[in-house]
C-alpha cells in the first residue's frame, strides 16, 4: 500500500510539474502564442463575447482578452517567481544564521522576524508599494518585505533541529567555522524543504501581486497584469463578465497548480514539519 501511494504521489508530481512547466512556457512564449497584439485597439469589435475569432472575447477597446491574459501572465508570473526566489534567499540566510548561531544574534534576528510577521502581509506590501515609485522592481521589493519573514522562521526551525545532528558536531570538531558549517553542511540539507516551501508560497506571492496591481500599485497600464485587468474591467461586470472571468481563471488555475504541487511534494518529504 505504501509503495502504491508513493508511486501515485510521484505520478501526480510529474503531472503537476508538467502542468506548471506548460503554464510557464505559455507565459514565456506569449508573443508566439497570442493570436492578436495585446495592446492593439480594434474599435470594430468592442466588447464581443467569446467566439471562435476571439476565444475569450474582447474588451471595451476591442483588445483580445486571450492575448492580454497570456501577456499578463508574463508580468504576473515573473514578479511572483522573482519575489519568491528573493524572499527565499533572504529567509534562508537570516533563518539559518539565526537558528545556527543562537545567542544574542538569534534573539535580535528572531525579534526582527516576529516583527515582520506581526504585520498583516498585504497591508505592509501596500504601505511599501505606496511609498515607492511604481514599477517591477518596486513591486518585487514590496512583496519581499512582506514575505521573507515566514521563510526565515521556517529555516530558523530547520537550523535548530539540524544543529543537534552528529555530522554538525563532526564538522565542528575538525575546526570548521560557523559560516562554513552553515554554507556547506546545513544549507544542502535545507534544499528539499526550501523547494517545498517555495512551491507552497508562490501562490500567495502571485495573489499579493494580483492584489497590488488590482489596487493600481503594481504594474502600470498599458502593460497587462492579471490583477490590473480584473480591476480595469470590473465596472463592466454586468454587461461583459468574460472580461473579468478569464483573467481570474488564469490566477486561480496557476495558484491551484502550485499549491497542489507543493502539498504533494511536502507529503512525499515529511509531514511532521511545521509549515
Amino acid at each position: 500500500m505504501r509503495t502504491f501511494n508513493k508511486v501515485r504521489a510521484l505520478l501526480l508530481c510529474k503531472i503537476l510539474g508538467t502542468g506548471i512547466i506548460l503554464v510557464l512556457l505559455c507565459a514565456a512564449a506569449a508573443p508566439l502564442l497570442a493570436p492578436y497584439d495585446p495592446v492593439a485597439v480594434d474599435l470594430d469589435c468592442v466588447k464581443q463575447p467569446p467566439s471562435t475569432r476571439h476565444l475569450m472575447g474582447t474588451d471595451t477597446l476591442g483588445r483580445d482578452i486571450l492575448s492580454r491574459v497570456l501577456y499578463a501572465g508574463r508580468t504576473s508570473l515573473a514578479i511572483g517567481l522573482s519575489a519568491t526566489v528573493v524572499s527565499l534567499g533572504i529567509g534562508l540566510c537570516i533563518g539559518l544564521i539565526s537558528g545556527y548561531c543562537g545567542g544574542a544574534l538569534d534573539a535580535a534576528l528572531s525579534m526582527t522576524i516576529d516583527l515582520f510577521l506581526a504585520f498583516p502581509s498585504l497591508l505592509l506590501a501596500i504601505a511599501v508599494a505606496v511609498v515607492l515609485p511604481p514599477g517591477i522592481g518596486a513591486t518585487v521589493f514590496a512583496l519581499c518585505i512582506a514575505g521573507w519573514a515566514s521563510f526565515a522562521r521556517l529555516f530558523r526551525g530547520v537550523a535548530l533541529s539540524l544543529k543537534e545532528e552528529q555530522f554538525i558536531d563532526a564538522a565542528r570538531a575538525v575546526g570548521c567555522s560557523s559560516m562554513r558549517i552553515i554554507a556547506v553542511h546545513v544549507l544542502p540539507n535545507c534544499i528539499s524543504i526550501a523547494l517545498v516551501a517555495a512551491s507552497l508560497k508562490i501562490g500567495s506571492f502571485i495573489f499579493a501581486e494580483a492584489a497590488l496591481s488590482f489596487l493600481g500599485l503594481g504594474i502600470q497600464p498599458p502593460t497587462p497584469a492579471w490583477g490590473s485587468m480584473i480591476s480595469l474591467y470590473r465596472g463592466f461586470l454586468p454587461s461583459a463578465p468574460w472580461m473579468v472571468i478569464f483573467p481570474g481563471c488564469a490566477i486561480a488555475g496557476t495558484v491551484l497548480l502550485f499549491n497542489i504541487f507543493g502539498e504533494v511534494l511536502r507529503d512525499m518529504i515529511d509531514n511532521r514539519m511545521q509549515w
Binding site: 480584473i230 480591476s231 454586468p238 481570474g248 491551484l256
Partner: peptide, 22 residues
C-alpha cells in the same frame, strides 16, 4: 476547498456579485 483557496478574494467577490446580483 483547494479551488477556493486558490481563488483571489477580489475575483471571488466579483463572481459572487455577478451571480447573485446581476
Amino acid at each position: 476547498t483547494a479551488t477556493f483557496i486558490a481563488m483571489p478574494v477580489f475575483w471571488l467577490g466579483l463572481l459572487l456579485m455577478y451571480v447573485f446580483c446581476f
